[in-house]
Design a protein around this nucleic acid. Structure first.
Length: 865
RNA sequence: GCGCGGGUGGCGGAAUUGGUAGACGCACCGGACUUAAAAUCCGGAACCUUCGGGUGUACGGGUUCGAUUCCCGUCCCGCGCACCA
């Protein structure tokens, strides 16, 4: 055995072995239970980043652990290969997105292989390949047939200089990122998928996902946003006639109806548009609302503006005339695009009423106490109605029911359910995506591409230039014949949202090689995914779209599952130090951590930093997510080259629990490597004395008995940490603690060596899902001729776990005052008596009588005086 | 702005169901080995202290025999907000 740990030798050896033996090839078979372990596939941006290493290490640990537990494990990998960065790179280097993407894939695949992940590469899926996206198109056509896909207009960011649609990411401070032009909103025709038809099921089935983190389910539920409210019709004529003109609003707070002092409609509302036709001021206001981008964050944080349309509506109960305003804070996409404004009981309405001098009329007071008048802020809690006609004195909940009932009888409204969720707009005016399979014919209108003509293949040699979609300029793509009438027609040039690609890739892994069907019976075997791992940033959109897509496939009879992902682990981001410097022009330049020399105080805190290049000071900005713009990313390749894959994997798993953010630290990497070296030497020093078999029974010294107990307790803890808790950092800490213990046990007699053999074998097995290369080598040394790939996950020996005595904590008034060793079978009374008699307790009782004695079995005794 | 998380020594973190706060690791300090250094090994340490003890888990309050953990409020940080993936 090599006395030195040499990852550069043992890692390629292990990887070659796995490749030659096809160790991770997954084959369907009913003999063993299946375990489908899936990590979110990467976007091929160029090279792996630390987030990938973290994500795929977590997945690999779970895959390898379950493999040892006897499961038939599938761990596939693929590429989310369409997307905007490829077009940006093309603009920069003049290389077609296809070439850039395929080159990146080749490089990153090599990096993944170098990390030793137990991946079945025979199922690799690449979303920009026609054999994959053909099925996007095919399913889109099925959805079109069922009315689940349809056309309507949607609002996009428009760059007036480049004459192009911008992604939200390309709008910076309200301006186009390349032109600097103020961005405008523009309505264009788009295709939508009717995800709202599945809203009820998407919401209800969150309860059927016990393996999902609560926070993800809460976020999804809030996103879907089912709210029970009342639709109220405000008459647009003073005397309301049945069937007369009304303005419909939706509210969850019908109890505040008597507090309405004005109505507000969105700038896109028909009423606003009608007013604009006769009033140039309103037209100008609406035009002003069209400035700026379309994100909800931008809309919600902008200053609230409004303008009186001059029109009035009449209150359904009091018949009071109410002014109708156009307001930029009313969203056309939610409810009716109009709200009844109750400044006294809604914060936004309150701010708006203050600004424009509109009346504020309180009608709800707390159940106990009074409202402090005049109101300094909106009172938004439910309470008791007053100044509300016949409804005064009722509670909010009661009033909502009654008001809805009366409105219904008057024909002026009814209870209604509203969703926050909107249908999914999938059209993108971009080149590097899956073509939408439609044809525009002057005579026949929009005609679907027939199934036999699929896939509509995207030409791979275009180079976008930042203005418009280059596909539109490709005659060979655009010109086609109408499948209906056979006359010349134009092909749709919009492509699909890349979320479409990622909404079903997990099912395609199961039947990746089938050219005739989207999925086949093998999906019935593997699906649903047992364990899904990916970034928390995907908590809503990707996961919700995938759930929706699954249900559509199910309803088409393609798959049998309702939910695609059984258990979900959302990993945290990877962070690093940020260094920057103000330029003379007032700009900010960032320095990569390896370009900076840091001065720390005697406690190790960073107090100063200077650039290596010029020796001048730079500012330390603290810690933040690794990003290109802040230049604080660390290339995992450097880490792997220097320390090997196992060190990279160990550091990632040890530095933080998987769900939390992880801070990069050079010295912690060093520490992980040091542990592996220590482990190597420990095994080396043991095996050079000759081969022994692991302890299998016989009388032990107390020291060896304690070691075996620690060993098997650690095994129990590590098993629980990996399988149930998925807290790999504490599993590693427990093994480290055990190796520290093992290192303190001396002696080379046969008995000691047999226990040491047992301990080292178990340590190697326990660590093998995390650091598989070194463990493969060490296992071969400990048991010559044996192969780790054939080893099972060990089980704790119950005989090693027995104990006769245990230690309890003694407290007086909740403060730790001493310890007490008692027999395991000691009764509560005996423990209480022994505790009261102990000198520590006596001392702190100070002669006072015990008021109460709390005995927590196995833990502590608390004496209250 | 809205939704969801998080905040514990010098640092990353541990404390799993309300029961010993600080496991494990990093950095630091001291010692051993060495001509020396690196590597390695051993030991120390939350803070204050009159050495009895006291204080301490972002901040302020509450519930409890007992709160890092539960409740209310405040501050700060992160993620998402529908065309980044």
């Amino acid at each position: 055995m090599d006395p030195q740990y040499r990852p550069e030798i043992i890692e390629p050896l292990a990887q070659r072995h796995w490749q030659e033996k096809q160790s991770f090839r997954a084959v369907e078979g009913p003999q063993r239970p299946k375990y489908y372990c899936l990590s979110m596939f990467p976007y091929p941006s160029g090279k792996l980043h630390m987030g990938h290493v973290r994500n795929y290490t977590i997945g690999d640990v779970l895959a390898r652990y379950h493999r040892m537990k006897g499961y038939n494990v599938l761990q596939p990998m693929g590429w989310d290969a369409f997307g905007l960065p490829a077009e940006n790179a093309a603009m920069q280097n003049g290389v077609p997105p296809a070439k850039w993407t395929y080159d990146n894939i080749a490089y990153m695949k090599g990096q993944l292989q170098r990390l030793g992940f137990a991946i079945d590469w025979s199922r690799e899926v690449t979303t920009c390949r026609p054999e994959y996206y053909k099925w996007n198109q095919w399913l889109f056509l099925r959805m079109l047939e069922r009315g689940l896909a349809y056309q309507k207009t949607g609002v996009v960011n428009w760059d007036p200089v480049d004459q192009t649609v911008l992604a939200n990411e390309q709008v910076i401070d309200g301006r186009g990122w390349r032109t600097g032009a103020l961005v405008e909103k523009r309505e264009i025709p788009m295709y939508y998928l009717a995800i709202t038809r599945y809203a009820e099921e998407l919401l209800a089935e969150l309860d059927e996902l016990p393996g999902w983190p609560g926070r993800v389910k809460t976020m999804q539920a809030n996103w879907i946003g089912k709210s029970f409210g009342v639709e109220i019709h405000f008459s647009l004529t003073e005397r309301h006639e049945p069937g007369g003109e009304v303005l419909k609003v939706f509210t969850t707070r019908a109890d505040t109806l008597f507090g309405v002092t004005y109505l507000a409609v969105a700038p896109e509302h028909p009423l606003a548009l009608a007013a604009a036709e006769t009033n140039p001021d309103i037209a100008a206001f609406i035009a002003a609302c069209h400035k700026g981008g379309v994100t909800e964050a931008e809309l919600a944080t902008q200053e609230k503006h409004g303008m009186d349309t001059g029109r009035k509506a009449w209150h359904p109960f009091t018949n009071a005339p109410l002014p109708i305003w156009v307001a930029n804070y009313v969203l056309m996409g939610y409810g009716e695009g109009a709200v009844m404004a109750v400044p006294a009981h809604d914060e936004r309405d309150f701010a708006f009423a203050r600004k424009y001098g509109l009346p504020i009329k309180p009608v709800i007071k707390p159940a106990e106490g009074e409202l402090a008048l005049p109101l300094q802020a909106a009172y938004t809690e439910p309470g008791i109605l007053f100044d509300s006609g016949d409804f005064s004195g009722r509670s909010s909940a009661d009033a909502i029911e009654k008001i809805a009932l009366v409105l219904k009888n008057l024909g002026l409204g009814d209870k209604r359910v509203t969703w926050r969720l909107r249908d999914w707009g999938i059209s993108r005016q971009r080149y590097w995506g899956c073509p939408i399979p439609l044809i525009h014919c002057e005579d026949c209108g929009v005609v679907p591409v027939p199934d036999e003509a699929l896939p509509v293949v995207l030409p791979e040699d275009c180079v976008p230039d930042g203005s418009g979609n280059p596909l539109a300029r490709r005659d060979d793509f655009v010109r086609c014949t109408c499948p209906k009438c056979g006359r010349p027609a134009r092909r749709e040039t919009d492509t699909m949202d890349t979320f479409v690609d990622s909404s079903w890739y997990y099912a395609r892994y199961c039947s990746a090689d089938n050219p005739h069907a989207m999925v086949d019976a093998r999906a019935d075997y593997w699906m649903p995914v047992d364990q899904y791992i990916g970034g928390i940033e995907h908590a809503i959109l990707h996961l919700l779209y995938s759930r929706f897509w699954s249900k559509v496939m199910r309803d088409l009879g393609l798959v049998r599952y309702d939910e695609p992902f059984g258990r979900l682990l959302t990993q945290g981001m990877v962070l690093n130090h940020i260094f920057s410097r103000r330029t003379e022009q007032g700009g900010l330049v960032y320095f990569a951590p390896d370009e900076v020399e840091v001065t720390s105080d005697d406690k190790g805190r960073i107090v100063a930093a200077r650039a290596k290049a010029d020796g001048q000071p730079v500012d330390y900005q603290g810690i933040g997510t690794m990003s290109k713009s802040k230049r604080n990313g660390i290339d995992p390749q450097a880490l792997i080259d220097r320390y090997g894959a196992d060190t990279a994997r160990l550091f990632m798993m040890f530095a933080a629990p998987p769900e939390q953010t992880l801070e990069w630290s050079d010295s912690a990497v060093e520490g992980a490597h040091r542990f592996l070296r220590r482990l190597w030497r420990m095994v080396y020093e043991h095996v050079i004395l000759g081969v022994v078999s692991a302890y299998s029974g016989g009388e032990l010294t107390p020291e060896l008995q304690a070691l075996r107990r620690a060993l098997h307790e650690t095994l129990q803890k590590v098993t629980d940490d990996i399988e149930r808790r998925q807290q790999f950092n504490t599993a590693i800490a427990a093994v480290m603690e055990l190796t520290n213990h093992l290192g303190r046990v001396e002696g080379i007699d046969a008995l000691t060596r047999s226990v040491r053999q047992e301990a080292l074998e178990l340590v190697v097995l326990m660590l093998s899902p995390i650091v598989p290369h070194i463990c493969r080598a060490l296992y071969g040394e400990l048991r010559p001729g044996a192969c780790l790939m054939q080893a099972s996950w060990p089980e704790a020996d119950p005989n090693a776990l027995t104990r006769e005595a245990m230690e309890l904590v003694l407290q007086v008034n909740g403060k730790l005052r001493g310890r007490l060793t008692v027999a395991v079978e000691a009764t509560r009374e005996a423990i209480e008596a022994a505790a009261l008699a102990s000198p520590e307790v006596q001392r702190f009782m100070g002669g006072r009588p015990a008021k109460k004695v709390v005995v927590v079995p196995g833990r502590l005794v608390n004496v209250v005086v």
